[in-house]
């Protein structure tokens, strides 16, 4: 009772009280950067870096939703485009020194009509910004990616290392849960170095979940 009175006197209010008049917002544990890969039209592969655009940084739940609600849904993106949500100061590329020893969990769906990619991608985003993809102290999550291609969708979770087996398997299990994969389907983990030498998405998985 006493605590309630104090709160009311201080007029602490959230966006749920009034969307244009509130005093506090919900902090995220990290600042995140949304990146977008524009489809290239007839360009060579070396143009890829130029197609990767930094869209916006944010560090609150309120900003996340304002952004999410005002950008195209994954299903509305043109082919050959990607969204990347990464911790600030990490470029969503293998070549970033912070990613060079890392890897990724990836789920690839070839029958695009069978999945609600918007729902799966939103669940992945919420796991990232809500910090529920990993255990306290794992410090593995670098970012998440949705890849829109003619023949498939892919959602990936990028990690800092490729050998911290206990933490990585935990992340893989959570990924599988949030994707609501039917029994028999699995997600695979590969290291960026393996992928770089054997070709993107052809690398032999190091782990499966």
């Amino acid at each position: 009772e006493a605590e309630t009175d104090v709160v009311l006197e201080n007029k602490i209010s959230t966006v749920f009280d009034s969307t244009i008049d509130f005093t506090v917002k919900h902090p995220l544990r990290h600042t995140w950067t949304l990146w977008y890969t524009k489809p290239q039209h007839g360009g060579s592969k070396s143009d890829w870096g130029d197609q990767l655009k930094e869209v916006i940084d944010f560090d609150s739940v309120e900003e996340f939703w304002g952004i999410y609600n005002n950008i195209p849904k994954a299903s509305e993106l043109p082919q050959k485009s990607d969204y990347h949500l990464f911790k600030k100061s990490v470029r969503p590329e293998w070549e970033d020194v912070q990613n060079e020893n890392g890897g990724k969990w990836a789920y690839q769906c070839r029958d695009k009509r069978q999945v609600d990619i918007d729902d799966l991608w939103l669940n992945t985003l919420l796991g990232a910004v809500g910090e529920t993809l990993e255990d306290e102290g794992d410090n593995e999550i670098m970012g998440v990616v949705v890849t829109i291609r003619k023949a498939h969708y892919r959602i990936s979770i990028w990690t800092r290392t490729a050998n911290n087996e206990k933490a990585l398997l935990g992340i893989g299990r959570r990924f599988k849960e949030l994707l609501k994969l039917p029994p028999g389907e699995s997600v695979d983990f590969s290291s960026h170095k393996d992928a770089a030498t054997s070709g993107s998405s052809r690398a032999k998985p190091r782990f499966s979940a």
Partner: peptide
């Protein structure tokens, strides 16, 4: 928050 924060941020 999904249907609450709909304006540009």
């Amino acid at each position: 928050f999904q249907n609450v924060v709909t304006a540009r941020p």
